[in-house]
């Protein structure tokens, strides 16, 4: 799972509505795979990203390429930084933990398991 996908997932346990996003990545085994840089796509992606979630998640994983505040001016350097963080950094193993209710979503072989038990839906 790349961080762009992490940016779109939240805890969906029934009744868990505060602090359910972003999920905190723990015990992460990261992998960086080069991907083709598509500046037009990244530019269109910016308004859809939750910047705070992307920034803080990246920092928690030791990635310091992004500015804390989303800059007003979009430069090629910024697009490349977003590309690197959101589209090239992936979590191969680990877990995504809800800071609201503590639910743990395991990530295995790059695939987050978002399935809930019957009593959590």
């Amino acid at each position: 799972m790349r961080l762009i996908t992490h940016n779109m997932l939240q805890c969906h346990v029934k009744g868990c509505t505060t602090n359910n996003f972003p999920l905190q990545i723990q015990d992460a085994e990261l992998e960086t795979l080069e991907a083709e840089f598509n500046p037009g796509f990244v530019q269109r992606l910016i308004p859809k990203l939750h910047w705070g979630a992307l920034y803080h998640t990246a920092v928690s994983l030791g990635i310091e390429d992004l500015p804390e505040q989303m800059p007003e001016e979009v430069t090629e350097d910024l697009l490349r930084a977003i590309h690197k963080v959101a589209l090239e950094t992936r979590v191969k193993e680990g877990k995504a933990v809800c800071l609201g209710c503590g639910h743990v979503y395991p990530i295995s072989n790059g695939i987050p398991n978002m399935l809930l038990q019957d009593n959590e839906v």
Binding site: M1, R2, I4, T5, L9, H12, L33, A35, R90, G110, I111, P112, N113, M114, L115, L116, V121
Partner: peptide, 12 residues
């Protein structure tokens, strides 16, 4: 191909 896969029930 670089696809992300998510184990999620569409009904949920």
């Amino acid at each position: 191909l670089d696809a992300d896969l998510v184990n999620l029930d569409v009904q949920e």
